[in-house]
């Protein structure tokens, strides 16, 4: 399952999808909204490009790390503190591949997928991580 959703993410369902006879390990990463002094987080997504990117990342990770399954669901819309932003579930024959694949997928999402965070509080600010604008970054 690869996609973007405005609904809560059912992490148990993702893990169940990863259970296969050939998988000896399932690694799950759950990104959550941290309290950095704001009330909520708004996630904006260019869904057309993002879904294409997530599928590309899943395919590359499957090949690169010999994964038996990849599940990636990313939220959009407004999220409260502690809510799940992203869930990544990787199955592999052995734990090393599952851990490595899960970590690689997260870094690819952070680098390439058109998703943006905006703090919701007194004065919302986009997380904007350009080299010349580090003070705005998360």
């Amino acid at each position: 399952m690869i996609g973007i959703t405005r609904d809560n993410i059912d992490i148990s369902a993702l893990i169940e999808n990863a259970r296969r006879p050939e998988a000896g390990g399932i690694v799950t990463f759950i990104g959550t909204v941290r309290d950095d002094g704001f009330e909520a987080l708004e996630l904006e997504v260019c869904e057309e490009v993002a879904v294409r990117d997530l599928n590309r990342i899943a395919s590359e990770a499957t090949e690169k790390f010999s994964l038996t399954s990849v599940e990636i669901i990313h939220r959009s819309g407004r999220l409260a503190l502690t809510e799940t932003i992203v869930a990544i579930v990787c199955g592999a024959a052995h734990r090393q591949e599952a851990f490595a694949g899960c970590s690689w997928i997260l870094e690819e999402i952070k680098a390439y997928v058109p998703i943006w965070k905006k703090d919701i509080g007194d004065e919302g600010a986009w997380h904007f991580q350009s080299p010349s604008d580090q003070q705005q970054g998360s």
């Binding site: 932003i85 943006w116 350009s130 970054g137």
Partner: peptide, 10 residues
């Protein structure tokens, strides 16, 4: 065409 700022997902 579309212009995207640096992304911050995950």
């Amino acid at each position: 065409f579309t212009l995207f700022p640096p992304v911050s997902g995950g």
